Structures are given as C-alpha cells and as structure tokens.
Simulated scan of single mutants.
Amino acid sequence: MAYEEMKCRKCGKPIQFAEGAPWIRCVYCGAEYTRTAKKEKAGEVQPIGNGGNPLFEAFLPAGWTYRIIEDGSFSSLAPVCLGIAFTGPGGVQMTFLPFAYYKDAAVRANPFSPQSVPGEQFDGMSLVRYRKRAALPQYAYERIAAITKTTQLRVEPMDAGVLKEKAAWFGREAGQKLQGAVHTEQGKFRVQVFAEGRSFRGYFATVQAYLDPGERTRTDAGRDFLKKGMAFLGAMYGIGGMASYDWGKAFDVLLLTPEGDPAEYEMIFDEFLRTIAYSPYYYAMQEAELRRTEQVQINGAMQRQQNAIRSSQQISRTLSETSDIVNQAYWDRSERMDRVWEKNSEAVRGVNSYTDSTGRQYEADVAYDHVYRHGDDTFAGSKNGSVDLGPEWEELKRG
C-alpha cells in the first residue's frame, strides 16, 4: 500500500497517511486529521498571465481564480510591476507582488515628486524609488499594512527554508542589477490581521538582496562615485536614472483566510513559493520599458539644449518591435508615467507647452503669458497680451 508522509502540526512528529484513507490519527499525540488539506492542494504548475502571453509560472490549486494587478513599486531597474491576486474557496486570498529595486534612503529626491506612502518616495526625473531598507520583520509589517490597509496586525517569524532556492536565484539576479556582491535574506511569517471587525490569519514571505556598504571594494566605491557624478550632470540636462540602487526584493507574497485553520493552506503557500517563476515574456516587457525609458532621458537632454521656443520632439509611446508582447494594462501605466515625467520636466526646465492651429507643439519660457508665431521659425512673446502684431501672426494656444 502507498503512503503519504506528513508532519503532525501538534507534536511535530512524522506520520503516514495511507492512500485513500479519509482521516488519520497521530500515534504520538493522538491528533486527528482529514484529507481537507490534500484536496485544497490539488492543482498543478501552469502558466499565469493574459491570453497567450504568460507572465509567470506557478502552482495554482484547483478551483482557484486569479487576476493581474499592479504593485506600483516603479523604478528604472524594474519598470514593469505586474503581480497576481488569487481567490480560493472559503474566502482565502493570496497576493503576489513582483520584484522591485530601491535606493536606501527616505529623503525626497525631487521637490516636484509627490510622496506616495510614508518612508517611500518616487523621483519622476530620475525614475528612482527611494525606500529605507528595514529589518525583515519590520518590512513584513509595513508591506502587510500597505496591502490590507490596516495597522492592526501581528507578525511572527517562521522557518524560511522553503525560500532558500529562491534567495540564491535572486542573489544572482540582483548582483547584476546592483552591480556588486550582494547579501540575501529570506523571511516567512505567520500573520494575523484585524480588519472590519474580523480576524484574518495566514502567511507572508519575501526575499531581499542588498549591497553591504561596509564591504564594498575601492573599485565599487569608485564606480558609485562615477555614477553620482553622472547623475549630477544628468540632472543639469534633464537626464535621470543614473543614480545607483542599494537593495531590492524578489517578491512579496501574502495569504490570508477569514475562517478555518490557516495551516491547511500552508502547503499551498509553500508550493507556490517553490514554483513561482517569471516568464521570458515578463523579462521582455522589462527590457522594452527600459529601452523606452532611456529614449525619454535622451530626448530630455536634447530638449534642454534647444531654444525655449523651438519645437520639441514628440516622444514616441510605441515600440513597434515589441507591440506583440505589450498588454493594455502595461501601456496604461506607461502613459501615466510619461505624463508625470513630462510635467516634472517642464517644471524643472521653466517652460510651458503651446500648440498652433495645426496641432504642432512648442515650448516657451514661463516668463511669457502669450506666445506668437510667424512662419515656421519666427516667434515673439508677451507678458500681458497687449501687443498687436497684425494678422500674419498666430497666437499659440497654451497646452
């Protein structure tokens, strides 16, 4: 007869489940178990994503549904932030948030950039997200609070051995992104959340990688100094994204259930952690967005050197060579970030946008309230609009 081995949750001793048996009693402590957990686990590793372009591959329990969501942890090293929200039987919810990178500081980098959440800022010019790196228990508390929209919660560390392989993988990935030797940490936590008069219990897991400033070589320090110098010059010409990063997360995963014993879902949670992987399509989206971001920065440098009232180039929002791998949610977020960058750029450079009767766009110094055009390359500005240049002159419309 075939047997399935499991560990008793009460005494920790190994026990065997006979194939087809509906229940079992632990011979050491007498605790009884049914096959409920086994039924919940039934499922398989499969592609997860939109249409024929899977974003991830992971274990998905039978009967569970999912939808693609956005994390919002945008940075120039990980500009695509698509995650997954799962729904299971009995109201169980599991949220997967993707990898992101941060600068280890809680200082506002750009006065024109709004602060998103306490302790975290996004610089629209450099496209860098600033977030102070915290110890794993504190980080877990902050992330769970942000996901559940409540601070009434408890976090208890657990054995995180199930994340060992994922930590090794992310150490290699982050080492290339952060350009240096990195340390990795993995954390798994038992969680209890109090919200809307109810108690939810479950699990949270994360993997982090970070550079240790105390162990950087002189070469590393020199490269970082060069980056900071380039970032300073880049800021003068409207180029961002040169600042170095200090740490990143491989993912955050939170499972909560409003009823029953959360231990019944721990094997599902662990199986998901072991199998979750980013697809080649996800990485292709990252590379496409990185190239687009670089083009935005280059165009920004060119515009800074042009005359304030000469026509500026329209930044293309289309990557024709990757159009077959870009979904609508990705483009919606990209367009919003383009708008944020454009308005920040105008404010920093001291210009306003104008449009002529044909729809052609121009930029002019904020000192002028009215701007006029004659022909293709002759312009005039007025501070009070009282000038009368004649019918051959067209007043441009403020954008």
Score class of each variant (00 low, 15 high):
Phe272Arg: 00
Arg67Lys: 14
Ala145Gly: 05
Cys81Gln: 14
Pro61Leu: 10
Arg190Phe: 01
Leu396Val: 15
Val340Gly: 04
Asp71Pro: 05
Ile315Gln: 14
Glu215Ala: 15
Arg310Ile: 10
Gln313Thr: 12
Thr150Leu: 05
Gly171Lys: 07
Ser311Thr: 05
Asp71Lys: 05
Glu289Thr: 14
Ala231Asp: 10
Gly234Leu: 09
Met302Trp: 14
Lys188Ala: 07
Gly20Met: 08
Ala367Ser: 11
Met302Phe: 15
Ala58Met: 11
Glu266Tyr: 14
Met302Glu: 03
Ser353Pro: 04
Arg333Glu: 14
Asn110Gly: 02
Glu264Met: 10
Phe96Lys: 02
Ala235Leu: 10
Lys227Phe: 12
Phe112Leu: 14
Ala174Phe: 03
Asp338Arg: 15
Glu346Pro: 01
Met337Gln: 07
Gly88Val: 10
Glu165Lys: 04
Tyr283Phe: 11
Gly63Tyr: 15
Gln176Ile: 03
Ser199Lys: 14
Glu19Cys: 10
Pro213Ser: 01
Val182Thr: 10
Pro61Val: 08
Met94Asp: 00
Gln295Cys: 11
Leu178Tyr: 04
Tyr130Trp: 06
Asp324Gln: 13
Trp23Arg: 07
Leu396Met: 11
Gly187Met: 04
Tyr33Met: 10
Ala174His: 03
Gly51Phe: 09
Glu266Arg: 12
Lys41Thr: 07
Ala134Gln: 03
Ala145Glu: 02
Gly234Ala: 07
Phe194Ser: 06
Gln313Met: 12
Gly180His: 10
Ala62Met: 06
Glu363Ser: 15
Leu97Asp: 00
Gly214Ser: 12
Gly359Ser: 12
Ala205Gln: 02
Pro118Leu: 06
Tyr33Ile: 14
Arg154Met: 01
Ala288Leu: 09
Asp270Gly: 02
Arg333Ala: 14
Asn50Cys: 05
Thr65Phe: 01
Glu392Tyr: 13
Ile276Cys: 00
Phe170Pro: 03
Phe86Cys: 05
Ser116Arg: 09
Gly197Leu: 05
Lys343Val: 08
Glu264Cys: 07
Gly238Leu: 09
Arg129Asn: 12
Arg133Phe: 10
Gln93Asp: 03
Gly30Asp: 08
Glu173Asp: 10
Phe99Gly: 02
Gly197Asn: 04
Trp331Gly: 05
Lys41Gln: 13
Leu55Ala: 06
Pro111Ser: 03
Lys177Trp: 11
Pro89Tyr: 09
Met94Cys: 13
Ala221Asp: 01
Thr293Lys: 04
Arg304His: 08
Leu273Trp: 03
Ile147Pro: 02
Ser323Tyr: 09
Pro79Phe: 03
Val27Asn: 03
Val296Leu: 09
Thr293Phe: 12
Lys177Asn: 09
Tyr368Leu: 06
Thr257Gly: 15
Tyr210Asp: 01
Ser113Cys: 07
Phe74Ser: 06
His374Ile: 04
Ala181Asp: 07
Ala109Met: 09
Gln179Cys: 09
Gly229Glu: 02
Ala78Thr: 15
Arg310Thr: 15
Ala167Leu: 11
Lys383Asn: 06
Ser316Lys: 02
Tyr278Ile: 00
Thr257Tyr: 04
Ile268Asp: 00
Asp224His: 08
Arg129Leu: 13
Ala21His: 14
